[in-house]
Structures are given as C-alpha cells and as structure tokens.
Amino acid sequence: MKNTIILSVKKILALTCAIGAFGAVAHADIVFSNLNQPSGLFNSGASTNGGTAQIGDEVILAGGQSGIVTNFSFEFYGSNFVGSAQSARVLFYANDGSASPAGPLNPQSILWDSGTFTIPDTFNPTYGTNCLVSFDLGAGVSVPGDFTWSVVFSGIGTSESAGLVFSTGAPTVGSGYNDYWVNTGTVISPSWSLQVNPSYSVDFLAQISTVPEPSTGLMLFSGLGVFAVIQWARRSSGKKY
C-alpha cells in the first residue's frame, strides 16, 4: 500500500515535470531587447532619397540561438507629416548574400514582410516624440540566431522626416553590432551597404520574442518520454541497476 502511494506520488511528480518542461518550451521568451535605453533619433533620409529609404539592424538573439519570432516591436518617429501618405514596411532578412566590402554578408533572403502600413506623426501628446510599433506574428517566423530586421519608409515629403530610434548602449538581452545596414536601392533591387556613424555606436531600438524551433521541444519531450519508459521498465521488472 505504501509502495503504491509512493509510486503514485512519483508519477504525479514526473507528469508535473513533463508538463512544466513542455510549458517552458512553448512559452515565448524575449531574446533581444534594448527598448529601455533610447539615445536619439536616426533620420532614415527618406525625404532626400526619393521618399524611400531602408535601414536595418543586424542582431544576435540571446545565446545566438535560432527560433520562431512570435512578437516583434520597434520604435520610430515621424515629424511634420502632411496628409496621410506616409508609410512603413518591416522586413526580416537572413544575412546570406554576398560579402560586403567590410566582410559581413549582405541581407538577402527575406524571412518576413509586414507589407506596407500607414504611420502616424509621432510628435504629439499621444506619443511624445517617438512611437512603439508591435506585431503579433501569430504562428511565428523562423529566424536564425543572427539576422537583420529593417524598415522601409515611403511617402515622406521633402519637408517631412521619419526614422528609427537608436541606442548607443549594448542591448539588455541579446547583442548587436556597432554598425547598421542601409539599402539605397529598392526592396526588389537592393543595394546594401554596411555603415557606421563616426560619433556613435548605433543599435536601433527593438524587442524580439521567440519560441524555440519545434524540433527542440520535440527532442526534449521525446527525451522525457524515453526516460519515463526506462523508469517504468525498471519499476516493473524490480531490477536494481
């Protein structure tokens, strides 16, 4: 009777551990963030580049681990907007293109594209000077541990400006580089260059949450299952190893 009770308790504990482990796997974790340390505004140059400009930041997720992005947020600003033609478009890229003159590989393969969305003027009481934009990516977007997120601003008139918010400090979660990507072409015909600001180390403000790749969770769950079967077999046979 006593053994039966002990066995039941152990079964419950094992089940709890398994459920807990699986829950941990499915839970989204913040793997990159520097939202808490804004330093300044980075003008995308859209108003002087034919109304469009694409700037991007290459980031390294915590531990360099790939994952499935379920939430993405970034900060931008818009100033002196006239009318409502101003828009933005967010894209994720794998850095799998040809090597830039400095060495790092250019962004090339598009991993995710938000499509174009209208952006507001942010110099107002609602936002202050800048604005946080968040995307719920639903089932998620699979990304490598090092990739580039970017924003294309369009419809920015000559008297208007728009850009991202940057930080000069290191991210609080994940890491980045002291440079940023600029596409002086278009999304379809890009012309990327890796640039630095002579006065500041630039990381654009963003926050990225991921869940692990399914295979990771599956392997962990399978491992727990095998462990449970071995334990059960040992109990059933009564053998001591």
Partner: peptide, 12 residues
C-alpha cells in the same frame, strides 16, 4: 535627443 541620420554614415 541626439539627432543623426543616414547622411552622416560612412562605410564600415
């Protein structure tokens, strides 16, 4: 805030 932009960038 500090204000910088694409125009000030130089190649890495």
């Amino acid at each position: 805030p500090v204000e910088i932009g694409v125009g000030q960038g130089t190649g890495q």
